[in-house]
Design a protein around this nucleic acid. Structure first.
Length: 820
RNA sequence: GCCGAAGUGGCGGAACUGGCAGACGCGCACGACUCAAACUCGUGUGCCUUCGGGCAUGUGGGUUCGAUUCCCACCUUCGGCACCA
């Protein structure tokens, strides 16, 4: 077979275009409700229309497509939709750079990317495409906002919020990342601004979001979300100031309350101006200004020496009525708990450092059993361990194990505090001071307040004629006429809200819009919802673990409570792919010049080869660096597939019964493992199993097996296993070998268990656990014969050196281990 | 500091329930084909070896007849969180 020219060569560019056209013309991948079939909703994260389909998109989507196709062959009615997350900052920023309108830019990108996506040969049902920036889509994004508003899940408040000075907009807490607290999009460190903004009550669902029961989500994502929500059990306690104000604190150590010798408020705490005495005013204001200027970078570093200022005010420790000073310090954060703490220097390291520096009293109230009696004068650090309560009034002597609950009991009995659970999760800030987003559908009326736009007036359309360059002010505010309107209630003059919504709002429900993108009476057609939801498999990047994947769960649960959606979770199973790095093992980027373009690869190799290689070259969930010569292996494999199935055999030999049996065994064994691997997202071993089987088939073909029934069976099974991975070549060979169109409408082959059975096995013979011989024996060999055969082995005899075996271990079908 | 994941040939990786470590592919070497090269095909390819074998899955222990797999401790890399009260 040195010159396989008897048939036309494999030309992917020809057959791929041909079949893509045919499939589209036939509506092969249309997914419609079919009550007679089990449904399968396979969802993969929708791309941002940034202009070009990246190899990362292919890496994420190809295996998702292959698995959706596998499910389809298994007999499921599979929905595998695609769309574009088209609102938001990146589109707007790119448009600014190019001086072109965001809308024009985004829609021209969508046009291009749709074509690129089609070149993958994926089974997307394009009739269900949804684009979040279309009025028919964001109408319903606005509708959800109004539902949330009407049910107290959306509210406005003035608060210090994170603001990106480069993107010129506020950000949700989740969009601020890293030690330096930078913007998720542009990397600029954020600043705090006091602004009146819209929030969703995600914290209402904090507890429920911690519950992953019944969900097949990666441990990793569960951990990331759990850490992000950061639940801690403790107590809230009210401290009264000597002037009668209440200061609420949260503590995880109510058992140390008797040791609270001072209080610390965050510099931004709203009570600070009121509490500060005249003599301390100057120092306090200076400190506040300094804290503000310093920003979060240095402020949130634990290594920094603690600083603070006395306010001049005092509070009363409610458990022992001691008068304790109130300080402000930047180690207390306004964004966590209540922004105020009771300081217990003996048992908290931060409080200890602070107390030592400013010479504040230290009271020991916990004595851990395994530590010498603690002397406050001699301490070199706080003792945070739990232990028996001491110097704690009526609770003195309470053992460490029950100290927490006894202390809470005491607080509740005396009405000075109660058990509380605190979360780090914040309510979701959804206001954005940018142009390219869905307008928040609220009207401000001087008489009626914040009034939602009536449903029949939705969508509140985003005007095109806006000066959309970001200034920190909402661009819609600068439009000459857009914001002026009438109050929907009283008809008086009123103004529209000019902020737009966070794009994560759009992507929180896109899986619902796919169900019926043209439906105009509701966000989705309830019939479609009843059939398709929930999403069975969701695939996408891990980077959304604490953003999109929390928001969409919240969204679903909130909608469920409003009677819009049903069930505990929107997505039952989640899998995350890893990242394709450049050949230099670095993240791909234009500046590094290590970007791999899928378009170029398709031109050279064809889509099937790119698909196969992306599934083969790494463990999907881990990713790996790209390897340009590695992909050659995939094209070689497909060429070999081509010739092996299409070229007539070149031998006069007649296949023996044994050869036929061997072929069938390998085919059905491979089918077994490929089926299992598809189920488990082990895509790399699917391809390697297919390569291995092909190698065996090529050998079998030389033995004259080509015209047998066994070959015909092998061919049919092989092509159906290949079809999800390489849909074009599989369809082409399927047609050329005389099967009925389309391979993608066939059913997944059944394993013939009888055929998989081995007749002979290689018996491993060990002496003291070390391999000494391999014996080919009948598969059904009994224990006695296996042991005898092992002892009989010449090699074994050499190692026995005439000694008597102490013990002989026999593992049926596998090995004999002789212990001497 | 806390939480999580991963460490296997020159490289990507395989090993289903504790049972042949290195499947499959890349790369490399040699050979065939060719005027030549590419393609294609074939053979070989963990390390050491006195050719008997010995050593090898980050390191060190443990359990076991037997450990890449289970347990303990540690090291390295990556990711997340972090003065979280």
């Amino acid at each position: 077979m040195t010159d396989p020219t008897s048939i036309p060569t494999y030309k992917p560019e020809v057959i791929e275009t041909k079949w893509q056209k045919r499939w589209e013309a036939d509506g092969l991948y249309h997914a419609d409700i079919d009550p007679d079939k089990p449904k399968f909703y396979a969802l993969t994260m929708l791309p941002y229309p940034s202009g070009d389909l990246h190899i990362g998109h292919w890496y994420a989507m190809t295996p998702s497509d292959a698995r959706a196709r596998f499910k389809r062959l298994q007999g499921y009615n599979v929905l595998f939709p695609m769309g574009f997350d088209a609102f938001g900052l990146p589109a707007e920023n790119a448009a600014i750079q190019r001086g072109i309108h965001p809308k024009a830019w985004v829609f021209q990108n969508i046009e291009k990317m749709r074509g690129q996506l089609k070149s993958m040969g994926a089974m997307f049902d394009w009739r269900r495409e949804a684009i979040s920036a279309e009025p028919s889509y964001y109408k319903w994004t606005q509708w959800f906002f109004i539902k949330f508003f009407q049910n107290d899940l959306a509210y406005q408040k003035e608060a210090p919020v994170d603001f990106c000075p480069n993107c010129n907009t506020t950000l949700a807490r989740e969009q601020v990342q890293g030690e330096d607290r930078h913007c998720e999009r542009c990397g600029t460190p954020v600043i705090k601004k006091n602004l009146r903004q819209w929030f969703f009550r995600t914290t209402n669902y904090a507890e429920e979001l911690l519950d992953f029961s019944g969900m097949d989500w990666p441990e990793r994502v569960q951990t990331l979300q759990t850490n992000w929500i950061n639940r801690s059990e403790g107590a809230s306690v009210i401290f009264k100031t000597t002037t009668g104000d209440d200061i609420e604190v949260f503590t995880t150590r109510p058992d140390t309350l008797w040791g609270a010798t001072f209080m610390v408020l965050a510099p931004e705490h709203p009570l600070v101006p009121k509490l500060t005495s005249d003599s301390q005013k100057e120092g306090v204001t200076t400190y506040q200004d300094q804290a503000k200027r310093m920003g979060n970078i240095q402020r949130e570093s634990a290594e920094r020496e603690k600083t603070g200022v006395f306010t001049g005010a005092y509070a009363i420790n409610p458990v022992n009525n001691k008068k304790i000073p109130i300080w402000i310090a930047d180690y207390v954060m306004m964004g966590y708990g209540t922004g105020a703490i009771m300081a217990v220097p003996a048992h908290d390291q931060r409080d200890f450092e602070f107390a030592r520096k400013y010479d504040l009293p230290i009271e020991v109230v916990i004595q851990p059993p395994d530590i010498d009696p603690i002397d406050p004068e001699e301490m070199e650090g706080a003792v945070p361990a739990s232990g028996d309560m001491v110097n704690s009034g009526p609770l003195t002597g309470t053992p460490g194990e029950i100290a927490f609950e006894k202390a809470v009991e005491y607080l509740e009995k005396h009405a000075i505090g109660e058990a509380t659970i605190n979360y780090r999760l914040h309510d979701w800030l959804i206001s954005r001071q940018r142009y390219w987003g869905a307008p928040i559908p609220i009207v401000y009326c001087p008489k009626c307040g914040a009034v939602p736009v009536p449903e029949e007036e939705l969508p509140v359309k985003l005007p095109d004629d806006v000066e959309w360059l970001p200034t920190g002010e909402s661009p819609l505010k600068l439009h000459p006429t857009w914001r002026f309107t009438e109050c929907p209630i009283c008809g008086g003059e009123a103004q529209r809200e000019t902020d737009t919504m966070d794009t994560f709002m759009c992507s929180s429900w896109y899986h619902l819009r796919y169900l019926s993108p043209y439906y105009d009476e509701y966000p989705f057609d309830p019939k479609e919802y009843d059939y398709w939801m929930p999403v069975d498999t969701y695939t996408g990047g891990i980077e959304h673990a604490t953003m999109h994947l929390i928001y969409t769960r919240f969204f679903h649960k909130a909608c469920r409570d409003l009677g819009i959606t049903r069930g505990k979770e929107p997505m039952l199973q989640l899998r995350n792919q890893g990242m394709v790095l450049g050949e230099d093992n670095e993240k791909m980027s234009k500046s590094r010049g290590n970007v791999i373009s899928p378009d170029d690869l398709v031109k050279i190799y064809g889509a099937d080869t790119v698909r196969a290689y992306l599934m083969f070259f790494a463990r999907w969930e881990l990713g790996a660096p790209w390897n340009s010569s590695g992909i050659e292996g995939s094209i070689r494999w497909l060429r070999k597939v081509w010739y092996t199935f299409l070229e007539p055999e070149d031998t006069d030999r007649q296949a023996t019964a044994q050869a036929i049996k061997n072929l069938r065994r390998k085919v059905h064994q491979t089918l077994q493992s490929v089926t299992r691997d598809f189920e488990n997202f082990n895509f790399n071993t699917i391809v390697s199993a297919l390569m291995e089987l092909l190698n065996e088939m090529a050998i079998a073909k030389a033995l004259g097996i080509f015209s047998t029934e066994a070959w015909r069976e092998a061919e049919s099974i092989y092509l159906r296993m290949l079809a999800p991975v390489c849909p074009h070549i599989a369809e082409e060979i399927w047609a050329q070998t005389g099967y009925e169109y389309s391979i993608h409408n066939q059913s997944w082959p059944e394993v013939d268990l009888e055929a998989t059975r081995e007749e002979e096995i290689t018996l491993i013979v060990q002496v003291n656990g070390k391999l000494r011989d391999r014996l080919v024996v009948p598969a059904d060999i009994d224990e006695e014969s296996a042991k005898l055969a092992a002892l009989d082995s010449e090699n074994v005899q050499n190692f026995l050196e005439g000694k008597q075996p102490k013990k002989i271990i026999y593992i049926p079908g596998r090995l004999v281990n002789i212990v001497i």
